[in-house]
Amino acid sequence: MSVAALIVAAGRGSRAGEGIPKQYRDLDGQPVLTRTLTRFLSHPEIDQVLVVIHPDDRDFYEASVAAFAPLSPALLPCVYGGDTRQDSVRNGLEALAASAPDIVLVHDAARPFACPELIERAIQAAERWDAAVPGTAVTDTIKMIGSQSEVVSTPDRANLRAVQTPQAFQFALLLDAHRKAAAAGLHTFTDDGALAEWAGLPVHVFEGESSNIKLTHPADFLEARRRLEGTTMTYITRLGTGFDVHAFGDGDHVWLGGVKVSHDRGVIAHSDGDVILHALTDAILGALADGDIGTHFPPSEPQWRGASSDRFLAHAVGLVRERGGIVDHLDTTLLCEKPRLGPHREAMRQRIAEIAGLRVDQVSLKATTTEKLGFTGRSEGIAAQAAATIRLPEVNP
């Protein structure tokens, strides 16, 4: 059976940080796309390889394939993608229709570590099932959440798989499914397996590879380079502190630790005035040496008026993870005479853990009065101080 590989390289890769699209970035001396193409052009069962690119990336593409041409007749002329990944894949399939391979493997250009055995399993899966995707077992517990971040259900992870590429299909079936989706006005499928499911095709899962990572964030590139260099990831520990204060004003509640607490006063604040979440946000930003909450969410901008502070904390935690880091522990002390923390402590710990994606035992929450001293002692306002311990990948100069 004839086999074609369709490499999707038309994306912008904005989550990988500033710079050229991630598929053309240097990875230990070679563009990512070059490394990905090498995996497929060197496989004995791949007859054709076609790359779908963005119209603005022609020069990057030509530089990435210079090492192959003219020695790789299997590498077909590239085609331009569309507005969405689905449109790009369909453009590639339409270009392959002239030769009409029996099997097509659709693969992300930003997955440069697809091993020969994985490619072989993909081809065999398409021969056996017509439509199949590689998947790896899920090791974390997965939560389905609602509009208020509440847990709706906990699926049995034994039945869950994290799906990768290359995804494998009988060519005619996938092309027909794409044409039907386009005719129905659907253009936002980000996964060809999901599109095939929509078209009524039974999709099976074959064994993926944990090493078949997709380069999405800057930390992924760091890990990929370490893998190619044969080194292991090492981390440095950082500690950051934060402090926040708000004066009391009119109102009947305050937000603390992401929990609405009844009180005879409110707080005067641009956002919801959650001193605990604000202090934690600044503590994490401090550990990152990345400014403060006002830098990222300027109070002069109307969009943050009345904003829920869980967005601030989630943003700070996201910055840690984008850099390949780990949040180890969050610790906060609330300073006020009232309201009392005790009745709400566990609910706040749970909420902070949910926002930050941590276990509850990684969140500490304490409270103290100031013995009637100062503005908190006079019940004029409320304050919180926080500490955050994180780990970041160690980068050698």
Rank of each mutant, 00 (worst) to 15 (best):
S309T: 10
R15H: 09
W255K: 15
V320D: 11
A122S: 06
I355E: 00
L33C: 09
G286V: 06
A386L: 06
E62T: 12
V8S: 13
F248H: 11
I7Y: 03
E209M: 04
I293G: 03
F169M: 05
G286D: 13
I103V: 15
T241F: 13
T234G: 00
K180Q: 12
L358S: 00
L334M: 04
D191T: 07
A356D: 06
V395C: 06
A109N: 04
L319V: 05
L105I: 07
P298R: 00
A347C: 13
D290P: 02
Q350Y: 08
S14V: 08
G306E: 09
S99P: 05
A289W: 07
R157V: 07
P101K: 10
S42M: 07
G17E: 05
P134M: 12
I352M: 05
H253D: 04
L50Y: 00
V133E: 09
T36R: 03
A314I: 04
P343T: 12
L93P: 09
F297I: 08
R321A: 08
E127N: 10
G357S: 01
G374K: 14
Q23G: 13
Q164N: 09
G200F: 11
S72I: 01
K338A: 13
A66M: 14
V49T: 09
P343R: 06
D220F: 09
V363F: 02
A9K: 09
T154W: 05
R349M: 13
A181S: 11
A95W: 15
A66T: 14
F68S: 10
A66Y: 10
E197S: 01
W198C: 10
R225Y: 05
E394F: 04
E45A: 15
V49W: 01
Y24C: 06
S42Y: 10
R227D: 13
I382N: 02
R378I: 02
K143F: 15
D140S: 09
G185V: 01
E346Q: 14
G13C: 10
A181V: 07
L201V: 11
R345W: 03
D130V: 14
D252A: 13
A387F: 03
N212S: 09
F60A: 14
H278A: 08
G19Q: 09
F312C: 00
V152Q: 04
A158E: 14
P55M: 14
A367H: 15
K180G: 11
R15Y: 08
Q164D: 05
F297C: 02
W129H: 15
T139V: 15
T216W: 13
L50G: 01
G286F: 05
T154D: 02
D331V: 01
E117G: 07
D176T: 12
A67L: 14
V261Y: 10
H278T: 08
D220A: 10
E150F: 03
P155K: 00
G251D: 09
I7L: 07
H278S: 12
I103C: 09
G291T: 02
G318Q: 01
D130H: 12
A16H: 00
A347I: 09
V254F: 08
V360R: 07
G291N: 05
T368N: 10
V106I: 08
A356N: 07
G342C: 02
A100V: 01
L175Q: 05
T188C: 07
A110L: 04
V106M: 04
V267R: 00
N159W: 08
C115M: 10
S153D: 08
